[in-house]
Nucleic acid binder design. Structure first.
Length: 458
RNA sequence: GGCCCCGUCGUCUAAUGGCUAGGAUCCCGCUCUUUCAAGGCGGUGGCACGGGUUCGAAUCCCGUCGGGGCCA
């Protein structure tokens, strides 16, 4: 397939959501696979609802996903004259007509060109009722529409702006688009557009209609389903590669049971004909899994870069502080945000102990306090504050007290983090630092003694 | 309402008309382990339904039902 040219044509009336992103992604993969061009067109003819902010959001989203485009952006708002000329040409050919809506009426009526002068008229395309319009969709195969089922449709509104149907065809033609890859919701538009191509004597592109993306309730994905904006996923701590991988697999499979597929391999494996036909539900759990896989594939240095903005949001700007957390949480985090959430006790005091943890590990307060005191005094003596040596001390204390190491480990964890789970305790203690650990142990011992005094005066 | 698209585990998907319908995720066990996670092992779970074609159907055809989309 030579000289493939595809495009993504969002309208800047909203941010880029994951459905649009997936359409862009498939266009991009198709272009890259065939060594063709991926173009971008901003469909901003809805002047009232289009904003530069949204255009910005869309471009940022695409950049973040690595969906680089070729050639310059096309803005429909700068091409209004061309649409008007084409519409006029269709009228001249008798294939479209002026349509006037009298005051108070909802339907317009055809008027002759002479009569149209000075009136606010729309232009409608005259659908040949006896014709059959068919095309072969790259994904769905042969699709047939009957002309009689299609009503004459507006191509130019009375305010002088083109409708979607006209603008798409004119632009796709003048941009030399060879393959129109878009959402399934455009299937009913296709025959109308084909009629315009025919009327103008333009060569038809190939069409491929992608399945929809649904929410968990199987309804078309929308704001109601929570985060749908691409940049929102970035904010939530998803990696660009992970969202890319996830979206690519939503409706397409590279075969051979592949799940984690790097971008370059994706390009060589991508085949539009293997895209599925059925709508796919956006499954956050799978995204989370893919994200966690990509997090684990990152080097610590790469993660440091990625984590900076998330930590600075909570006031942590010390690289070294972040760096030492990375190995601790790398295989426990599903999102970048998790690093921050899971390591709170590094930056905040422990003010309370997990309720279930207290029941389990602080059950006999005085007994636990005394064990912790032994640990405390041994740890105070420890010069070389490394995970290995800390472990030696703790296990040594366990042995001398004749209790299992777990009897010390769990209470220590609860004391120094307030939580019952987390990274390996000794690495955690090393990372927290001697002073912090000792202080938190002292505080826990005090807490336990108070608790023991009021609890059970046996 | 008219037209169009679609229907394989809960979810994402694989399966030239031919082995006990495969993988991933989720969930549940077991294992490893100081906990959690990661890892390893195992398990529950699916061809929407009914006809036909065929030696043989998830796969082809028809119908029903269900879901979705566009237009009104």
């Amino acid at each position: 397939m030579g000289d493939v040219r595809v495009r993504f044509a969002p309208s800047p009336t909203g941010y880029l959501h994951v459905g649009g992103a997936r359409t862009a992604l498939y266009n991009w993969l198709f272009a890259r696979h065939h060594g063709g061009k991926f173009l971008l067109r901003i469909e901003d003819t809805d002047v009232k609802r289009s904003t530069p902010e949204m255009t910005d959001n869309i471009l940022k989203s695409l950049e973040w996903l690595g969906l680089t485009w070729d050639e310059e952006l096309v803005y429909q708002s700068q091409r209004l004259e061309i649409y008007r000329e084409v519409a006029k040409e269709l009228v001249n050919k008798g294939l479209a007509y002026y349509c006037y809506t009298p005051e108070g009426e909802s339907e317009c009526i055809e008027v002759a060109p002479e009569e149209a002068e000075g009136k606010k008229v729309a232009i409608k395309f005259r659908v040949p009722k006896s014709e059959r319009i068919e095309f072969t969709d790259l994904i769905r195969g042969h699709i047939v529409f009957e002309g009689k089922d299609i009503k004459d449709f507006v191509i130019m509104k009375s305010d002088g702006y083109p409708t979607y149907q006209l603008a798409v065809v004119v632009d796709d033609h003048s941009m030399g688009i060879t393959h129109v890859i878009r959402g399934e919701d455009h299937i009913p538009n296709t025959p109308k557009q084909i009629l315009i191509y025919r009327a103008m004597g333009w060569e038809l592109p190939q069409f491929a209609h992608l399945p929809m993306i649904l929410g968990p309730d199987k309804k078309k994905l929308s704001k109601r389903h929570g985060a749908v904006s691409v940049l929102e996923y970035r904010r939530q701590g998803y990696l660009s590669e992970a969202l890319f991988n996830f979206l690519a697999l939503l409706g397409w499979s590279p075969g051979e049971d592949r799940e984690i597929v790097p971008k370059d391999e994706m390009i060589s494996l991508f085949d539009i004909k293997k895209v599925g036909k059925r709508a796919a539900v956006f499954d956050m759990q799978k995204l989370n899994w893919i994200n966690s896989v990509y997090i684990r594939m990152k080097t610590d240095d790469e993660l440091l870069e990625l984590l900076r903005p998330f930590f600075s949001e909570v006031g942590v700007t010390d690289d070294e502080a972040i760096r030492k957390l990375i190995p601790l949480y790398k295989e426990r985090a599903r999102t970048l945000r998790d690093f921050v959430e899971l390591s709170r006790y590094f930056f905040e005091d422990v003010t309370e102990y997990d309720e279930k943890g207290v029941k389990k590990h602080f059950k006999r307060p005085l007994e636990v306090a005394s064990r912790l005191e032994t640990c405390l005094s041994e740890l105070e003596k420890l010069e070389n504050w490394t995970a290995q040596d800390i472990e030696g001390v703790v296990r040594g204390v366990a042995e001398s007290l004749d209790v299992s190491a777990a009897k010390l480990i769990h209470p220590i964890r609860l004391s120094i983090t307030g939580m019952t789970f987390g990274p390996g305790l000794f690495e955690l203690m090393e990372a927290l630092g001697k002073e912090t650990v000792l202080n938190r142990l002292r505080r826990a011992i005090e807490w336990l003694k108070m608790r023991g005094a009021q609890d059970t005066p046996e």
